[in-house]
């Protein structure tokens, strides 16, 4: 595993949207949260998981 730049940046963007939504839960923030932040977190998680999986495979753990 070399780096987690992409999942980190995706999650960072997700956190920004989530933070704004938490600060003022208006309809636009809610839409951004539901339609963008949550998929971003999903992408971050998948990308992170993929790296972890590859890392583990590389060390013959899996």
């Amino acid at each position: 595993m070399k780096d987690l730049r992409l999942p980190s940046l995706a999650a960072a963007l997700g956190f920004i949207i989530t933070g704004l939504y938490a600060l003022d839960p208006g309809p636009y923030q809610m839409a951004a949260f539901i339609f963008f932040a949550q998929p971003l977190f999903l992408i971050a998680l998948l990308s992170y998981g993929y790296r972890v999986w590859k890392d583990l495979r590389g060390r013959d753990v899996l």
């Binding site: 070399k2 730049r5 992409l6 339609f35 998929p39 999903l42 992408i43 998948l46 990308s47």
Partner: peptide, 23 residues
């Protein structure tokens, strides 16, 4: 971190594709 540009581009495209699919 210095990673091969192609790897980033591919992953970035994957991510954008994912976001697009979600949208």
């Amino acid at each position: 971190p210095a990673a091969p540009e192609s790897l980033y581009r591919r992953e970035f495209l994957w991510a954008m594709g994912g976001l697009g699919a979600a949208t």
